[in-house]
């Protein structure tokens, strides 16, 4: 059988190759041809020669990048925020999903699920308006209504960096909660109910059931999601960090991530070499990280490894 297959050869696969063709063509155009541009990070910018013919300057552009304190700030922000989001997102997502699972009323389940999923569908531009209508210190709801209600002083939200790690984490969780609820719920529903019934018969408490049935059953998905996030720890949700702070300069120290920096370098000065250098830095370190994550993933659960 096997040898026969080989003999009929590759011809039987032609339709398959044709089916793959549009997508592969797009990948080549959209993803592979632009790779040529990575060299910009190693060239001097000289428009009169054409950007691809500037002199090779080795790592000079990177030296320039790392000479400023920006490089450290954006790297730190990107990694710390990602870690924060992974941990908080996981704990929060699991808690919500497990408690949601306790709600039996079908109608209520539907309503809750539909409601919490709404933010997931909104663009960050829209979310930035939502945030602004709450946080603006002159016209925002929090200062004008909430804080007044409790007799507290108004807070200048957009100029106090110390609040922003919380605000950004909140927005991130808020926007993603519907999605993570779905992810975990799907897994939870797949757990055989007889486990729980047996545990109930044995007199297990709720917490024991969660601890000894639910969590172990969710282990693969937890591991997979964590690994995926770690692999992308050098990338940030650009919309979140760029749109939500409304470009407030006093917040730069806590809102600049690598993606934001790269974009700002381009928008402010049209500095394409700096933007490319940042991109190369991000890709290179990101690549190493995802390889590491993948190796770890293979160790834990081979099926979920990316490649």
């Amino acid at each position: 059988m096997k040898t026969k297959k080989k003999k009929t050869g590759w011809k039987q696969f032609i339709p398959l190759y044709i089916m793959a063709l549009p997508a592969v063509t797009y990948l080549i155009i959209n993803n592979y041809m632009p790779l040529y541009g990575m060299q910009l990070a190693f060239r001097e910018l000289d428009y009169s020669k054409g950007v691809f013919r500037g002199d090779f300057v080795g790592l000079r552009n990177f030296k320039f990048l790392f000479a400023t304190s920006d490089a450290w700030i954006m790297t730190r922000n990107t990694i710390l925020y990602n870690l924060l989001f992974i941990v908080v997102g996981m704990v929060f997502g699991l808690t919500v999903a497990i408690l949601f699972n306790e709600v039996r009323n079908k109608m209520a389940r539907k309503v809750y699920q539909s409601a919490v999923l709404i933010p997931y569908f909104m663009s960050m531009v829209i979310v930035s308006y939502l945030a602004y209508s709450y946080l603006s210190s002159e016209t925002g709801f929090i200062n004008n209504t909430l804080l007044k209600l409790f007799g507290k002083e108004a807070v200048a939200w957009y100029s106090e960096p110390k609040y922003w790690p919380y605000i950004l984490t909140f927005v991130n969780i808020w926007k993603g909660m519907g999605y993570s609820l779905l992810m975990y719920t799907a897994r939870l529903l797949a757990i055989d109910a007889s486990y729980y019934e047996a545990a109930t018969v044995d007199g297990a408490t709720k917490w024991q059931k969660v601890r000894y049935i639910t969590l172990p059953m969710l282990r693969p998905v937890i591991i997979m999601m964590t690994m995926l996030s770690i692999g992308r720890i050098f990338y940030s949700d650009f919309g979140l960090f760029y749109q939500i702070p409304m470009g407030s300069q006093s917040l730069y120290s806590v809102t600049t991530t690598i993606d934001v920096y790269s974009y700002r370098a381009l928008m402010k000065l049209g500095d394409i070499t700096m933007s490319s250098a940042t991109g190369v830095y991000q890709s290179a370190v990101g690549f190493v990280l995802i390889l590491t994550a993948n190796t770890l993933m293979r160790k834990f659960s081979k099926d979920d490894a990316l490649f």
Binding site: M33, M38, S275, G279, L306
Partner: peptide, 15 residues
């Protein structure tokens, strides 16, 4: 080739 695109991109200018 597909997975690779998740990791590297040529950046805005080149695109």
């Amino acid at each position: 080739a597909l997975t690779f695109t998740m990791l590297f991109n040529g950046g805005l200018t080149a695109t």
